[in-house]
Design a protein around this nucleic acid. Structure first.
Lengths: 202, 202
DNA sequence: CTCTTGGTTGAACGATCAATCAAGTCTCGG
DNA sequence: CCGAGACTTGATTGATCGTTCAACCAAGAG
């Protein structure tokens, strides 16, 4: 099996879904940009939705290599890693003049009646993301209050990222992202202070 | 001018954009559900995008009547109002079996290259929403730390709502919404405690 | 060499899309 | 009763959509 053509299709589809969304990306958009002919595409993918599934699988399998590792290079402190990841999204916003949107979040909101397979993959991508954050929180658990629900906090950080990106993109203004992250930082500062207070009591 | 037909078109388009999104809603979807013929629609709206603009204007102008007033009935405390509004979104999620999405947020993420008018209206809707929250925060400012950036905090609450709805919808699980709101409540609890500490010092 | 398998080519298909428009009906002022 | 503007009707248009398919090609197996 020729994995080269298949990969070119997937890479191109990733780009286009990110730029224009799933619905607004036509098969012929994918074909012309990837220099592949329709017969080849349909040789590898039964239909358009299967291209989407392939893209979501690629995101799912590539989170470590393409998202976490680049953003965590040289960052050791587990709680710093969280804000380093968020800074990575900020960089994307800067580079795209606040046009960037989280590809998973955009697809999750665009696709209203998803095929179960698609929905599961969207959820799996969210789960992988918050699991990575969860790992950071566990690593820094000594600086958080003892009764912190670290899973919920990880999901909450995903929420803040998605909402912050959404607003920055809608307003075309990085300030909305920065202020949101500042609020999250404040929440963390309060949590860490609380944790210190707990420790001095004992 | 016959505002009845125009309104029926707008109401139907609101429903459909919310159910299926903008791109996946065809003009003929709107026509068949609203019992209007294409000529009438194009008599009132130059094109599909102008229907979207009409819908966004209706949301903008109806926030008080359709969103705030119903959710704030019988709620006086300004900070309680914030969580009453969030509870309203929770109710929508319950009633739709976690299929609900914030219509503005969904459109904001779906439409990737928006016409300036559309983008401005999406932003205006966000601004109105956070302005309402901002009003609550101002009303309860005596229970918040003195240096609180209440505008940023209002935007942050919008962020949390959007992210929480997004996750609950993607997972089809209300728990994701509830845990997110619980985290926000915790943040507020910490802020209020801080404010109390400030007051006792003086 | 032939046969098979995996992959490519690109014209073509039916469906659906947003949008048009000429002809018609309604309403109301004069 | 007339005329004019507001609104409705619905067939129709050309573009574009996702998808299909028969013919073709390249390379390895026997």
């Amino acid at each position: 099996m020729n994995a080269d053509t298949r990969n070119r299709i997937l890479m191109t589809a990733m780009e286009l879904f990110w730029e224009k969304g799933y619905g607004s990306t036509s098969i012929s958009d994918i074909l012309s940009r990837s220099q592949v002919h329709s017969g080849s595409l349909y040789h590898f993918f039964p239909g358009k939705q299967d291209v989407l599934i392939g893209v979501l699988e690629a995101y799912r399998d590539g989170i470590e290599e393409w998202l976490l590792r680049p953003n965590w290079e040289g960052v050791d402190d587990p709680l710093d890693k969280i804000f380093a990841l968020l800074a990575g999204y900020r960089t994307h916003l800067v580079l795209t003049e606040c046009t960037y949107g989280c590809p998973i979040g955009s697809l999750a909101l665009e696709i209203h009646e998803p095929d179960p397979r698609v929905r599961e993959l969207l959820a799996a991508n969210f789960t992988n993301w918050s699991a990575a954050i969860r790992g950071c929180l566990d690593g820094g658990s000594d600086r958080l209050p003892r009764d912190t629900d670290r899973q919920a906090l990880a999901e909450y950080i995903l929420t803040v990222m998605e909402g912050a990106v959404m607003q920055a993109r809608t307003y075309r203004d990085l300030g909305y992202f920065d202020r949101n992250i500042a609020m999250l930082r404040q929440h963390f500062a309060l949590l860490e202070r609380e944790a210190r207070a707990e420790r001095t009591v004992n």
